[in-house]
Write a protein that binds this DNA or RNA. Sequence first.
DNA 1: AACCTGACTCGCC
DNA 2: AGGCGAGCCAGGT
Length: 108
Amino acid sequence: MTTFDKVYAAVRLIPRGSVATYGQIAAAIGNKRLARVVGYALHVNPEPGVIPCHRVVKRDGEVSSAFAFGGANRQAELLKAEGVGFLDDSHVDMKHYCVRALPLILEE
DNA sequence: AACCTGACTCGCC
DNA sequence: AGGCGAGCCAGGT
């Protein structure tokens, strides 16, 4: 199991209607410093329909401007469709919709 | 094969 | 309190 695979596994665990930060994904993998790698992993291999990349946001709750699977605006729409509240067009209401606890990926 | 960079985050000044 | 640098992994040049 590569680091990227762990990232994908963690992202898939994000409950519908909630979002997680790159840091939380990284923490779920075992190293919160991997936040950067998390973003890169999704960037290079965002398996369409399998990995809900749209549920991954920055620690502020702001969606990444580099979102490229349909536009950052598209990401906001998908989240809203799942019931995720927004503070504004690009900021998710973290204190209410950010996943509380993400399972730790123990795979290697 | 080594170096640079990239959807980030945290710590120190 | 805000800005800058370091750390992590993988892929491309």
